[in-house]
């Protein structure tokens, strides 16, 4: 049996005394697109931050490509190809789009491959090429999200984790982003996406997890989840 790319077992996360994630179990197969859905405050962002090493978990383990990732060393996550595109983009202000993209490759020193990857990002998002010398935080919301995804791609991810892909963006821009991400996925990068817009998420993903009050409560192929009557009433408003 082949190993999953990412396996999260029994993960728990606390902020001080406040426990936010109680028990999360999650599997992302190599090459898959996995969506995580759930209401506001369910702990999705916290869970993602723990999976990508931004927050030290309180319990449980994160196994990436067959190895337990030590939670004490956040750069280890990036080095292994577990890359996080954070909520709210978090671009470096006063730096150009180009510099932001290049900083995505901070841990890499394979210059030729980095150049190739920049070209790949520009091919994916031609608007970033046009605006590559512009201060990244002066871009439109959609372009900033492209830049943030581009920065993530510059780290040569095996798994790209995207928090709130479409938040605050026009539907047309979201379609554009989803198309680009499908291409990224087709080229071999697995995706784990938190998405407010459940309909879009379930259409985009192969597999989905539902997070509720800090626990992963249900999972299944996107089609099965989409057909689940409980999901339809709670998240799709049908």
């Amino acid at each position: 049996m082949t190993q999953p790319l990412l396996q999260v077992n029994d993960l728990a996360v606390r902020y001080g005394d406040v426990q936010v994630v109680w028990k999360a179990d999650l599997v992302v197969e190599e090459g898959a697109i996995v969506a995580m859905i759930g209401s506001n405050g369910a702990g999705k962002t916290t869970l993602l931050r723990a999976i990508s090493g931004m927050l030290p978990p309180y319990g449980g383990e994160i196994i990436f490509a067959g190895e337990i990732v030590p939670a004490s060393a956040p750069p280890e996550f990036v080095r292994r190809g577990l890359i996080h595109v954070p909520e709210g983009r978090r671009l470096f202000a006063r730096l150009s789009v180009w510099d932001n993209l290049m900083l995505g490759a901070y841990l890499r020193d394979d210059k030729a491959a980095i150049r190739q990857d920049v070209e790949r990002v520009f091919a994916l998002f031609p608007r970033l090429r046009e605006r590559r010398w512009q201060d990244a935080t002066t871009l439109s919301g959609g372009e900033q999200q492209m830049c943030a995804i581009g920065r993530g791609l510059m780290a040569a991810p095996r798994l790209l984790i995207i928090d709130e892909l479409s938040l605050g963006l026009a539907p047309r821009v979201v379609d554009e982003l989803v198309d680009a991400l499908r291409k990224v996925n087709a080229a071999g990068t697995s995706l784990l996406v938190v998405e407010q817009d459940v309909a879009t998420a379930l259409e985009f993903a192969d597999h989905a997890y539902i997070v509720d009050r800090g626990r992963t409560v249900a999972s299944g192929t996107a089609a099965v989840i989409a057909a689940d009557p409980a999901v339809r009433t709670a998240y799709l408003g049908l």
Binding site: V78, R79, H84, G104, L107, R151
Partner: peptide
Amino acid sequence: VALRCIAQNEDAAQVIGIDT
């Protein structure tokens, strides 16, 4: 470079793999 990234945006610095 790492320090300037931290000064500019510490969360983003962490995201790109800087040991802040």
